[in-house]
Design a protein around this nucleic acid. Structure first.
Lengths: 194, 194
DNA sequence: GCCAGTAGTGAAACGTGTTCCTATCATGAC
DNA sequence: GTCATGATAGGAACACGTTTCACTACTGGC
């Protein structure tokens, strides 16, 4: 089942897609994963339920796409304003800290997107991979710095992304505190040979 | 809502609990997360649906408890037969490799338990924490070796557990191969200051 | 043994993600 | 302009996790 691609044909379709994502983000921001109910998303976006499913074949697709857009924006911004810092460790800490704080500003939205991300099954593989790629770019870009080689940092970035994800999962499900997310990233940065 | 505790009062209750977990594991082994349907679990365990929900307040609880029992067994076994290896890195690699191979022998069961683990919400916090504690014991025990101090390795163990989890999630959802799980753990062991 | 209270049964019912179907609408080819 | 084709609306229907309820069976204290 293929979703309507991002390069949706008509302006009306792009607009519908935008409205759907906005509705999902609003509901998630207000009530988290459970509050993103497909009928309610369709109502708010003013599309029929069947249309919603034509654009996003499942609730998880929808939320992962919302997550992807956020990270894509973040990655673009990061590219225009490179992270400050003397070395790879300082720069990647800066990025991780900033992104984590941003996620923590909207706890329920982060909960919804994070749980969708980890619960996603094989049918969402393409979107998940895109998120992983963007996050990898974000982190390797920070570590490599201007003009550095990203490839040297791919493996380290993946470890950091893994720690980040696990810490976020612990936080969004109420098992740990917001500070703990940073503590775990901090530990990881310190323990990794950077 | 509190599940019937593991120290269930009567032998009949312990037996019911055992049957329920066995039924869940069987179904998961055969068809993964989606195949663990509560009505079917109740049927196979020969208990009423209401009874199943008295023992395990949700499908996720049920699968996380199954995961917990597996890791508890593994941890006990690990304690009786300490991991071989000259240093912390060798020993923890041995344990991670062995456990990962064990998980990969039953891909659908691992898929079911892993997805339950990451999708679990706050109501499963207690069980999740127990799983995390057992995994931490497993890894710190390996790294500390006989007579060593576990505490020195708590943070490293958590990073490794995070990488392990993220890699397993990637594998059970078909995004990466079984070998990739090991490759990522291998990278993490190499990149960490051990 | 009897009784009170707890546990278990069986079945119906509810909520929400997902699918399906038919009628209506929009758009591009001619 | 007309028509064919695909997109959207509207809504019913289905699947499965979860809840509820009335009834029965068990168990521990007397």
């Amino acid at each position: 089942m293929e979703a309507v691609s991002i390069e949706a044909r008509s302006p009306a379709q792009r607009e519908r897609r935008r409205r759907i994502l906005a509705a999902a983000v609003d509901l998630a921001t207000e009530g988290g994963f459970d509050a993103v109910q497909m009928r309610e998303v369709a109502d708010r976006a003013e599309v029929a339920l069947g249309t919603l499913y034509r654009y996003f074949p499942s609730k998880v697709h929808l939320l992962v796409c919302a997550l992807l857009e956020r990270f894509e924006d973040a990655e673009v911004r990061q590219r225009t304003v490179p992270a400050p810092g003397e070395d790879a460790q300082e720069r990647v800490r800066h990025v991780l800290g900033g992104q984590t704080r941003a996620l923590q500003r909207e706890p329920l939205l982060t909960e919804a997107m994070t749980r969708a991300f980890v619960f996603a099954d094989g049918s969402v593989a393409a979107e998940i991979r895109r998120v992983e790629a963007v996050v990898s770019d974000l982190l390797t870009g920070a570590m490599a710095g201007p003009g550095g080689s990203r490839e040297d940092y791919r493996r380290t970035a993946r470890v950091l992304a893994d720690v980040w994800l696990a810490a976020l999962v612990g936080w969004v499900t109420g098992r740990t505190t917001a500070d703990d997310v940073w503590a775990r990233l901090d530990d990881a940065c310190r323990l990794l040979v950077l």
